[in-house]
């Protein structure tokens, strides 16, 4: 083993020249990975925005992949069980946690958004079964694209009901130990 190693170290193939091809090979792989990341990011980026942000940049966003979050306006929900066509409006809610905290928590912010008629609203069209969680003042995160008609065509619907699971305080209690 030792003898063989000795030979290896003295062989003319090793050293700077031998190393160069490995460095080039490694750089090629790195370049390939970077290319894959950059091209895939460009092709698949989803812009996460609020209804207001969408409204202000609407023209430049038609056809792009978008994720919009907003508050579901219950009175606008229409569902046809035969065709499974579902439409509803969402009202603008702030996107950052800090403003949600300032507004008194998610439930309060959603409530305020739905009851305020002056809020920007966006109509969503979705084909699929109506989720149970789709109800007034739920938070909807819709993924899809904006059509020329100003309507949002959703491929995916994610719903959160802030009041539903946050039963953090015990309901039935007996005092004492």
């Amino acid at each position: 083993m030792t003898i063989w190693r000795h030979e290896m170290q003295n062989s003319p193939r090793t050293g700077v020249q031998g190393r160069v091809k490995f460095i080039i090979g490694g750089l090629l792989i790195l370049a390939a990975v970077i290319y894959l990341i950059v091209s895939s990011t460009q092709a698949n980026a989803e812009y996460f925005m609020t209804v207001n942000e969408l409204e202000s940049k609407a023209a430049s966003l038609v056809g792009r992949s978008l994720r919009i979050s907003g508050a579901v306006v219950g009175s606008t929900i229409h569902y046809d069980p035969q065709t499974m066509n579902l439409t509803f409006d969402i009202a603008n809610v702030p996107g950052d946690n800090a403003s949600i905290e300032l507004g008194g928590g998610l439930a309060a912010v959603l409530h305020a958004a739905v009851t305020d008629p002056k809020r920007t609203r966006l109509t969503i069209i979705y084909n699929g079964p109506q989720p149970d969680l789709l109800r007034d003042e739920a938070q909807a995160i819709v993924t899809g694209h904006l059509g020329d008609d100003g309507i949002f065509y959703a491929d995916e619907l994610l719903l959160k009901c802030p009041t539903k699971y946050q039963d953090a305080v015990p309901s039935q209690v007996v005092n004492g130990n």
């Binding site: 894959l36 990341i37 091209s39 895939s40 990011t41 092709a43 698949n44 980026a45 989803e46 812009y47 996460f48 925005m49 994720r67 996107g95 993924t143």
Partner: peptide, 14 residues
């Protein structure tokens, strides 16, 4: 300043 996410197609493609 713009939140951009990448979904499953990004990971699949790359």
């Amino acid at each position: 300043g713009q939140k951009v996410t990448v979904g499953p197609p990004f990971y699949q493609r790359a």
